[in-house]
């Protein structure tokens, strides 16, 4: 593990970069998936189309998706972010839709009968009750994003994948392993923290 001791700053920078890419990708994905999910939740045909399209994106191997974006967008963080976002849409949109659809009908009827307007009902009743499922989607998405972002280093996204690829080219085994271990640890840490939040939100939500 000499490499870590000699290059703590490089590692730290890569880690921070990785977290930033994932945070940006998550923000953009949510900005797309939330409205898309809300819009398609009560429109089965739209939802089928959305599932089909995002499902195809989700199936394409990460490296292939990055490669396909090169002729269109070139190299760097822009195309990397685009690809990561494309990957995230299936799970996020699906969980928004499932969460909203799980809100029991009598609760919606009571809210309507009480005089909630459409948007107020969405904000005060539907989204809070869908939150545990949405957070479960975010958890799955963040884990996927950390993984895909690692491969993103291939087209110049930076982050922990950079450490791995550099280690391979420079033939420094330690460096490869350190990059891989840190990427894995980041994914497991994110998974566990979001699982914790999910459990808390579920308990606070009051749904059986």
């Amino acid at each position: 593990m000499d490499w870590i001791l000699n290059n703590p700053e490089t590692l730290w920078e890569a880690l921070v970069q990785h977290v930033i890419i994932v945070a940006e990708a998550l923000a953009i994905s949510l900005a797309i998936a939330l409205p898309l999910g809300i819009w398609s939740a009560r429109r089965p045909r739209v939802y089928a189309l959305v599932l089909g399209a995002t499902g195809i994106l989700y199936t394409i191997p990460a490296l292939a998706l990055f490669a396909l974006l090169i002729p269109i967008m070139g190299l760097g963080q822009g195309p990397a972010l685009t690809a990561i976002v494309m990957y995230s849409l299936l799970v996020l949109t699906r969980n928004v839709v499932v969460g909203l659809r799980n809100v029991p009908g009598d609760i919606l009827e009571a809210a309507d009968g009480m005089g909630y307007g459409r948007w107020r009902r969405l904000g005060a009743i539907e989204l809070p009750l869908a939150l545990p499922v949405i957070i479960a989607g975010i958890r799955l998405t963040v884990v996927t994003q950390i993984s895909v972002a690692t491969v993103g280093a291939f087209i110049g996204a930076g982050g922990l994948g950079d450490i791995i690829f550099q280690g391979i080219t420079q033939d420094i085994g330690d460096k490869v392993v350190v990059g891989a271990v840190f990427a894995s640890a980041l994914a497991i840490l994110a998974d566990e923290s979001l699982r914790f939040i999910e459990t808390r939100v579920r308990a606070a939500g009051g749904l059986e």
Partner: peptide, 9 residues
């Protein structure tokens, strides 16, 4: 949860 690239290398 381990990233695929990490698992490979």
């Amino acid at each position: 949860t381990v990233p695929s690239l990490a698992l490979l290398v």
